[in-house]
Computed example of a mutant assay.
Amino acid sequence: MARNINADGGDVYRAVITSTPPGKPSSTWHEGPYAKPGAARARVSFWRNHLTDDETGKSYATGHIEKATTLWERV
């Protein structure tokens, strides 16, 4: 799928999520890029909520967002 996200050299954002379920190895993954930081924050919130234990209310996910500036070069 082709994307045209901040093709002008603007900032792009991604969500970095880390899951640490009990008794299982930790895993980290990235989602994005997104044109706005709010979209990346929404993905972090989604995973925090989705990976919450119903009985204890504890979330097994944490996350943050990262920013990068796109630099397009002719190849």
Score class of each variant (00 low, 15 high):
residue 2 A to T: 03
residue 5 I to Q: 05
residue 6 N to C: 15
residue 6 N to M: 11
residue 7 A to D: 09
residue 8 D to G: 11
residue 8 D to E: 02
residue 9 G to E: 05
residue 10 G to I: 00
residue 10 G to M: 06
residue 11 D to P: 05
residue 12 V to T: 14
residue 13 Y to F: 15
residue 13 Y to A: 10
residue 15 A to S: 12
residue 16 V to T: 12
residue 16 V to L: 09
residue 16 V to A: 11
residue 18 T to R: 06
residue 18 T to M: 05
residue 19 S to E: 07
residue 19 S to W: 05
residue 19 S to L: 15
residue 21 P to I: 02
residue 21 P to T: 04
residue 24 K to Y: 14
residue 24 K to W: 10
residue 25 P to K: 10
residue 25 P to T: 08
residue 26 S to V: 02
residue 26 S to D: 02
residue 26 S to P: 06
residue 26 S to T: 14
residue 27 S to T: 13
residue 28 T to H: 05
residue 28 T to M: 07
residue 29 W to T: 08
residue 29 W to G: 05
residue 30 H to W: 12
residue 30 H to S: 09
residue 30 H to R: 14
residue 30 H to T: 14
residue 32 G to D: 04
residue 32 G to Y: 06
residue 32 G to V: 03
residue 32 G to S: 09
residue 33 P to A: 08
residue 33 P to L: 02
residue 33 P to F: 08
residue 35 A to I: 04
residue 35 A to M: 01
residue 36 K to S: 07
residue 38 G to A: 08
residue 39 A to L: 01
residue 39 A to K: 04
residue 39 A to R: 06
residue 40 A to E: 07
residue 40 A to D: 12
residue 40 A to M: 09
residue 41 R to P: 02
residue 42 A to N: 05
residue 42 A to L: 10
residue 42 A to K: 09
residue 43 R to A: 14
residue 44 V to D: 00
residue 44 V to M: 07
residue 46 F to Q: 11
residue 46 F to G: 00
residue 47 W to T: 01
residue 47 W to E: 02
residue 48 R to P: 03
residue 48 R to V: 14
residue 50 H to K: 15
residue 50 H to N: 12
residue 51 L to I: 02
residue 54 D to H: 08
residue 54 D to N: 14
residue 55 E to R: 12
residue 56 T to M: 03
residue 57 G to A: 01
residue 58 K to A: 11
residue 59 S to R: 06
residue 59 S to F: 11
residue 61 A to K: 13
residue 62 T to D: 10
residue 62 T to W: 01
residue 65 I to T: 13
residue 66 E to T: 14
residue 67 K to L: 00
residue 67 K to I: 04
residue 67 K to N: 03
residue 68 A to S: 11
residue 69 T to P: 02
residue 69 T to A: 10
residue 70 T to F: 01
residue 71 L to D: 15
residue 72 W to E: 04
residue 72 W to S: 07
residue 73 E to W: 14
residue 74 R to M: 09
residue 75 V to D: 15
residue 75 V to S: 13
